[in-house]
Design a protein around this nucleic acid. Structure first.
Lengths: 232, 232
DNA sequence: TGACATTAGTTGCGAAATGCTACTAATTCT
DNA sequence: AGAATTAGTAGCATTTCGCAACTAATGTCA
């Protein structure tokens, strides 16, 4: 039970220190990768998420774009907030509060900033506890929203094969998907359109390239789905 | 294009003012209601969301609980972050950054604090631009997550009828649902269990009361759903 | 050159989920 | 008693889904 005997009727914003911590994700050869940057020698951990404070009159997405762009060497294609973290966990810059933001990149042909490096998300070096929490939440958020937002498409270049797309879904969800069902569902959704290009990737039949081009949704309003519940 | 000619390699947390703005939701007679509090006479708008700065060593959920509890006169059953807002929009306390949090309450038998009042979400009085944005986002988040989280159950007392539950879904989604399909889907999900109580609500057949009691999920992993896409 | 490995993409079917209409059940109102 | 009202169910046509088995186009290698 909390004490609320004399609730102060006056509200006051608190002076604190704020950081924007960015989780930049891109598909590596066979796993999902996150971008880390080297910390100054004085720091307790050798690596951290790219982060900084917001500048004056800079909104959160611009801040994230600046931070991610500096580390990645290019602009990520997509941003999504993953939450605010005000808790006891230690932040590398001793920020009281962190705003976590995921930035998605196709990972193609990037010239990383000096000191920045990709790591597979399931084999990360030690991070400050705050950054560890931000990263974990990022993975959750991406997994949860992958079938409501075009997240997967932002992890691929503009033109991609359906096998590549399926592979992105599989690494994010961490389980194999059925090829025929995947394609049928995608077909029915009018989210992609074929280009007239084909790509030959060594052996095997060449694959047709597609691009993300969501069409107007037909007015099909489904009932409520009680599966996909994350009970709590 | 942004200037990144000489990216500063040093990250620094920024000193700012922070507020936690809470959107307390509960079902009113026939619509969703949000709780507002009267502002001091000097304020530009007469009403605002309940808000305050976090205290030292207080995490966000505790802060939200304190703020919501003070206005509502009881503890809400559920909290969910809806995002951080750092933008030009004016906040009633001039906070640079707001953390928006939704608190869900069954609305049952509450003794509201002095100056607090329920308003239907689609007929709110004027709010500061920041609070308006927080409220709008709250509605979006609730609508988006209603079929992934037990949100609807937190807007009802512990025992409820299936018609009440369906009505909550309908007001949040803003469209009517089919009774038979709704119940069948709910049945299949093992999220509720019947009590042995029945409630007679004036006219009509009495309804059986249920409680939220999620069972272990059977390991049925579905394919990817490309419907429910919020294209962007 | 011709079998075979490899990857892309499709077809068809049984099973499950969904939308809908129409029904039965229990209560109050007049 | 009968109409009105709300709760809850049954059955069926249609769509969606999981899956296995197929065809298609390329490279590999004896």
């Amino acid at each position: 039970m909390r004490d609320r005997s004399t609730p102060s009727t006056k509200s006051t914003a608190r002076r604190t220190t704020l950081a924007v911590d960015v989780v930049v994700l891109a598909p590596l050869s066979n796993a999902l990768g996150a971008l880390l940057v080297r910390t100054p020698p004085s720091a307790r951990e050798r690596w951290s998420l790219p982060w900084d404070g917001p500048r004056a009159d800079e909104d959160l997405e611009s801040t994230a774009a600046r931070i991610a762009g500096a580390a990645l060497g290019m602009e990520p294609a997509y941003y999504e907030q993953i939450g605010a973290f005000t808790d006891g966990r230690r932040h590398p810059g001793e920020a009281d509060t962190s705003i976590g933001i995921v930035a998605l990149s196709s990972g193609a042909a990037t010239s990383l900033a000096k000191g920045a490096e990709w790591f597979p998300v399931d084999a990360m070096p030690a991070l400050s506890p705050r950054h560890r929490a931000v990263l974990d939440r990022a993975a959750d958020v991406v997994r949860q929203r992958i079938d409501q937002s075009p997240l997967a498409f932002r992890l691929l270049p503009e033109a991609f094969t359906l096998s590549e797309l399926q592979s992105v879904y599989e690494t994010i969800l961490g389980r194999p998907l059925h090829k025929a069902s995947f394609r049928r569902a995608l077909q029915a959704s009018y989210l992609v359109e074929p280009t007239d290009e084909w790509r030959s990737e060594g052996r095997g039949r060449p694959a047709q390239l597609f691009r993300y081009a969501p069409k107007k949704r037909r007015g099909l309003r489904r009932g409520v789905r009680f599966d996909l519940f994350d009970a709590r």
